[in-house]
Amino acid sequence: MSPYVEELQQTLQEYANASIAQQQKAYLKDLFEHYGIKAPVRRSITKYLLTKEARPFKEELDTIVKELWTLDQREFQHFGLDLCDKYKRQWVKSDLSLFEHMVVHKSWWDTVDFIAVNLMGPYFKQFPELIETKMEEWIQSQNLWLQRCTLIFQLKYKKDTNTALLSRCILQLNHTKEFFLNKAIGWALREYSKTNPKWVMEFTDQQQLHPLSKREALRLM
């Protein structure tokens, strides 16, 4: 274990709460172990490790985050999300492979949604030339979490949303029975309805969406 991750582990262990851990484990369908540290507390006790003085060099990020993804307690992965977020100004094209690794390993909505919206979203603002190729690759991947990313990475784009791309991704995934994809379709449309309700209304009228997707899309209308 790297010294940085070891220090993180020691910090988390000091604040472990078995009762809360059981609740958190149940909330995530018993998929992951937990220390039982709620997010505000975790962010407070690990704040120093995210400072410029304490965090690893950018060149170490890939190795550190992948190490965090091998550990059992979910707090390690949640910390890894916050750590990646600190390097936005230093991202390079190859960092996308790390984000993909994070999506397809220990996959669940609690990490995937953050990665898609808060990491991939800003990343593709910096490297828009990669969007078309990656969206098609992920849609064809048969990995539902990568597919979910194609639907929600633009969630914070507002007026900069590429509606042609959003429409294409939705229509390519529209006939699925997968809850997490149908929910994401509705979420993406609902979020964009805050910016362009007319477009969303017309889209939902013209397309045969899953009832869950349509209900979620029109919730704010």
Rank of each mutant, 00 (worst) to 15 (best):
S2Q: 14
E7N: 14
L8V: 08
L8W: 10
Q9V: 00
T11V: 15
E14I: 04
E14C: 07
Y15L: 02
N17W: 09
N17I: 09
A18L: 12
I20C: 04
A21Y: 08
Y27C: 03
L28A: 11
K29A: 14
D30Y: 14
D30H: 15
L31I: 05
L31G: 06
L31V: 01
L31A: 15
Y35K: 00
G36V: 10
G36R: 11
P40N: 08
R43T: 07
S44C: 02
I45N: 03
I45R: 08
L49G: 04
L50K: 14
E53F: 03
A54T: 00
P56C: 05
P56K: 05
K58R: 12
T63E: 14
I64P: 03
K66H: 02
K66Y: 01
L68H: 02
L68S: 10
W69N: 05
E75Q: 02
L81I: 13
D82S: 14
L83F: 08
C84S: 02
C84P: 00
Y87L: 06
Y87H: 09
Y87D: 06
Q90D: 10
V92Y: 11
S94G: 03
D95H: 05
D95C: 05
D95K: 03
D95M: 10
S97R: 11
L98M: 08
L98V: 05
F99I: 01
H101T: 07
H101R: 05
V104K: 12
H105G: 00
K106M: 07
K106H: 11
W108N: 09
W109C: 06
V112R: 01
V112S: 01
D113S: 10
D113N: 06
D113G: 08
F114L: 09
I115Y: 04
N118W: 08
L119V: 03
M120L: 15
K125D: 07
Q126P: 02
L130P: 06
I131P: 00
E132K: 13
K134C: 07
K134G: 01
K134E: 13
K134S: 05
E136D: 14
Q140H: 11
Q140P: 00
S141Y: 06
Q142L: 11
W145K: 08
W145P: 07
R148F: 06
C149P: 13
T150R: 06
I152P: 05
L155F: 15
K156C: 10
Y157Q: 03
D160K: 14
T161R: 05
T163F: 12
S167G: 07
R168E: 13
R168D: 13
Q172E: 14
L173A: 08
L173D: 03
N174W: 02
N174E: 08
H175I: 00
T176S: 15
K177F: 02
E178W: 04
F179M: 11
F180W: 12
F180I: 13
L181W: 09
L181P: 01
K183F: 03
G186F: 04
R190W: 08
Y192S: 03
Y192W: 13
S193M: 13
S193W: 09
S193E: 04
P197D: 11
W199C: 07
M201E: 11
M201A: 10
E202Q: 15
T204R: 12
D205W: 01
Q207E: 12
L209F: 05
L212A: 04
S213A: 15
L218A: 07
L218Y: 05
L220Y: 12
M221E: 09
